[in-house]
Design a protein around this nucleic acid. Structure first.
Length: 264
DNA sequence: CCGGATGTTCACCT
DNA sequence: GAGGTGAACATCCG
């Protein structure tokens, strides 16, 4: 589930874990930790301490550890979920059995009761120590037109490939990007550098409005266009049957009528 | 049984 | 070097 909207929901959820002392760390699946992080290290770092801050950087959730220089980076991959005291703001979570614990990878128990669980059936996510955020591009929510221009102007890659590249712009996922390109009327396969300045401005507007709207609704699947993103789906704007292409291995949908190849 | 799914990385082509 | 493709990670769903 996690795209920007879901990650923001989890950021808000995790804020409620701030200040709660951790008494136990259960690394149920050691391979869920990044290679340079052992269960022993993680446990030693967290037990007896608490988090004193939570932020989002691109698709990473970053938890800072009180009385420590370290941070924990949480990346939820394609299907990761976070539960605090059993609560998951992103529905529906993976549910395979009634205990609901089958896909828990890492669990923190708080001294005062309650727990924080990282649940990820598909296991594409990771828990990292001191995640390297320096490689991330500017965050989509605070992206400026000039920065977008810079991210696009030096490449003949398809514009969508560039937008999904987290080192160029951080935080965009497949669905959000399709919706934003649709709003801006830009074909996802167009070479990035072929966009003229007015198209880049439209795209910038599309990216920010799409990202903000999805966060407000708490779901990356909530957009009018995303709802039509299936075979036979039609453009909510002009009714044309949507087309599908593959870009960088990801399915991309667009309206053949108002997202033409040629620039306007 | 097969293909595809909201993410990322890497090997291998052209 | 740049860009494209496919595979890999693991599991569920139609």
């Amino acid at each position: 589930m996690p795209e920007l909207a879901e990650i923001e929901s989890y950021r808000a959820l995790l804020a409620r874990a701030i200040g709660r002392e951790i008494c136990s760390v259960q690394v149920i699946d050691p391979s869920y930790l990044s290679q340079d992080l052992s269960a022993t290290t993680l446990s030693g770092l967290l037990c007896g301490r608490s988090f004193d801050g939570v932020s989002r950087a691109g698709k990473f959730l970053v938890l800072s550890i009180a009385q420590s220089e370290h941070t924990i980076g949480l990346h939820l991959g394609m299907n990761g979920h976070v539960l605090l005291d059993g609560e998951d703001p992103v529905a529906p979570g993976p549910r395979r059995d009634e205990s609901g614990a089958v896909w828990d990878r890492v669990v923190l128990l708080f001294c005062g009761g309650g727990d924080l669980r990282v649940r990820d059936p598909r296991r594409f996510g990771r828990v990292k120590l001191d995640p390297d955020l320096s490689r991330l591009g500017p965050d989509v929510l605070t992206l400026r037109v000039q920065q977008l221009l810079g991210a696009l102007s030096d490449s003949h890659e398809p514009v969508k490939a560039r937008l999904l590249d987290q080192t160029r712009v951080a935080g965009l996922g497949n669905l959000t990007t399709d919706e934003a390109l649709w709003r801006a009327g830009i074909n996802p396969a167009r070479p990035a550098a072929s966009l003229d300045p007015s198209e880049v401005r439209k795209l910038h507007h599309g990216l920010l409005t799409t990202a903000r709207a999805s966060i407000e609704r708490g779901a990356s699947r909530s957009g009018a266009f995303v709802a039509q993103r299936h075979p036979g789906g039609v453009c909510p704007q002009d009714g044309a049957t949507l087309c599908q292409v593959r870009i960088r291995g990801r399915t991309s949908w667009f309206c053949p009528k108002h997202q033409p190849w040629a620039s306007s």
